[in-house]
């Protein structure tokens, strides 16, 4: 919607937009900046912006004191594991619904979505007790299972909206040319489906990485991903702003970068295709 405006108007709009954007981004900037200060500099009055001795000490301390990378690795395993498992289960379902739609397809899709509306706290107690009884509390396996199930509806939906955009005529053309079902899937459909699957994977890793209800309630020291590890800073000892910042920076950096790359998919995925 690029319409012509006067240069003056453009300058004012730009100034306001940039000011707001910088204000909104500031807490992230400040966290990253603080992570390079010493604890004393982190609480200095007046606050220090760039005029301090940059140090990587906090990153080292966080790792040494609390084995940071164990929790980082837990986050990786849980988010990637649950996403891949979910995609493996969801691809056939989304595929079938997109290419062989039946009378019930819409109802099945809507019903799947409705499971996502179930508030987690409504099933917290049974899941907690089941996990306690079968020894899944505080295990990565347990969290992979739960996160796979809570994100499965989103994965099916996203894949479905992508697959539905693959034109059926291409399949017919391939068939006319004598393609077998196997080569049809392998050489015609798969290449067209890959971008959609990749976007789905990306968005769901982000969602699983930041999930903070089940990860907080079902883990303790052992399987705690970063969401739960960072929560341990809510009752700290002594000065800790710089260390909190270092731990936070490492926790949000990978996902922030992935997020910037997946803005469009985010809209589609989180609105279940209602806004594109």
């Amino acid at each position: 919607m690029a319409r012509a405006v006067t240069p003056r108007r453009k300058a004012i709009n730009s100034a306001v937009a940039w000011t707001l954007a910088i204000l909104i981004f500031f807490p992230i900037f400040w966290t990253v900046l603080t992570s390079f200060k010493t604890e004393a500099q982190a609480i200095a009055d007046p606050p220090l912006f760039f005029n301090f001795d940059w140090t990587l000490e906090n990153y080292v301390t966080v790792q040494e004191r609390s084995n940071y990378f164990r929790h980082f690795w837990n986050s990786v395993v849980i988010s990637v594991g649950s996403t891949l498992l979910g995609v493996i289960i969801a691809v056939p379902a989304a595929w079938a619904m997109a290419f062989v739609p039946g009378k019930q397809t819409k109802n099945v899709l809507m019903w799947m979505l409705s499971t996502k509306m179930l508030p987690p706290v409504g099933v917290l107690v049974p899941i907690y007790l089941i996990f306690r009884n079968v020894g899944l509390l505080d295990t990565r396996t347990g969290l992979v299972i739960v996160l796979t199930l809570i994100n499965l509806p989103i994965i099916v939906w996203m894949l479905y909206t992508y697959f539905r955009e693959i034109p059926g005529e291409i399949l017919e053309a391939a068939r006319m040319d004598g393609a077998t079902l196997r080569s049809e899937i392998l050489y015609v459909l798969t290449p067209m489906a890959v971008p959609g699957i990749a976007s789905t994977v990306l968005l769901n890793i982000i969602l699983a990485w930041n999930e903070a209800f089940w990860t907080l309630n079902l883990t303790a020291a052992n399987a705690a991903p970063l969401t739960a590890f960072i929560a341990s800073y809510s009752s700290p000892e002594g000065l800790f702003y710089a260390k909190l910042s270092a731990a936070s920076t490492m926790a949000i950096a990978p996902i922030l970068i992935m997020g910037w790359f997946s803005q469009k998919q985010l809209v589609r995925g989180l609105t279940f295709g209602a806004v594109k």
Binding site: F25, I28, N210, A212, I230, I255
Partner: peptide
């Protein structure tokens, strides 16, 4: 810049 906070985990 504006979209960034959405990717910050709730505990952070």
């Amino acid at each position: 810049l504006v979209i960034a906070p959405f990717f910050v985990m709730p505990t952070v």
